[in-house]
């Protein structure tokens, strides 16, 4: 579903991402992990079509910046930013219009209820806490019923109930055949949800493996993470 081939991104003279390639299949949950400055956000922003890059990114077989690709992917950014004067419901209505969704009201109501936002439908963006803004941002991305979805540090600012709901949603998305890519640097938050782990360090993918393969080799994600990001000496 998501194919990234030789993705390279340079800011002036700084090489932020260097020839990164990976794939996330339908019904697969991939996690993109790495220390601060590893190039995760640049990778995510490139996939979301916000940056120019060298290489090739396709979503459902279409170039990621095409209108067709945009119709099928959702994006939850690291920093939720809502329109100050638009209510929670207005945001959902905007998304429904922008993606030309039909019969979306029911889905929107259910999503808001899951995140305890159903009583805040009329609150405007600037009156929401950061956590609430994050919930609206997630609802907007889910409303389109995406075939591929990206979450950039999705747990930050969420309350325990919302984190629990979100984890359930990850599994529901997987069951529905959606490809999910989660970027984070908090390993504990995604410990039990991932199928494929992609570890980035210094702009490169330094590890790419599935949960099954790692289980066969007796590797733990935390151990591999530290061995790959803190130098071979510690890998032991």
């Amino acid at each position: 579903m998501l194919k990234v081939k030789n993705l390279t991104k340079k800011y002036d003279k700084v090489l932020a991402v260097n020839k990164v390639s990976f794939e996330i299949g339908s019904g697969e949950i991939g996690v993109l992990i790495g220390p601060n400055g590893a190039g995760k956000s640049t990778t995510i922003k490139s996939i979301a079509g916000l940056l120019r890059f060298d290489g090739e990114i396709t979503i459902d077989g279409k170039p990621n910046k095409s209108i067709e690709a945009k119709r099928v992917f959702g994006y939850v950014p690291e920093t939720p930013a809502l329109y100050d004067s638009l209510s929670v419901w207005d945001h959902l209505e905007f998304i429904a219009r922008a993606y030309d969704l039909q019969d979306w009201n029911d889905t929107a109501e259910k999503l808001l209820a899951r995140f305890d936002m159903d009583d805040k439908k009329n609150k405007v963006g600037k009156d929401l806490s950061k956590g609430m803004q994050q919930k609206v941002s997630i609802c907007c991305a889910l409303l389109i019923k995406p075939r591929m979805i990206m979450f950039d540090e999705p747990m930050i600012g969420l309350d325990p109930k919302a984190i629990k709901e979100l984890k359930e949603i990850f599994f529901e998305l997987k069951d529905s055949g959606c490809a999910v890519l989660i970027s984070t640097h908090i390993l504990d938050s995604i410990a039990d949800v991932w199928d494929k782990a992609l570890i980035m360090n210094k702009g490169e993918i330094v590890f790419n493996s599935t949960r099954d393969d790692m289980a066969l080799n007796g590797e733990s994600l935390e151990h591999v993470f530290f061995s790959k990001t803190e130098g071979e000496g510690e890998a032991g």
């Binding site: 916000l50 209108i67 945009k70 994006y75 950014p77 920093t79 329109y83 993606y99």
Partner: peptide, 15 residues
């Protein structure tokens, strides 16, 4: 633009 435009309109299927 505002950041809300970047997050919600730049990623939407709008020309």
């Amino acid at each position: 633009f505002r950041l809300s435009d970047v997050n919600l309109t730049f990623t939407a299927p709008i020309k």
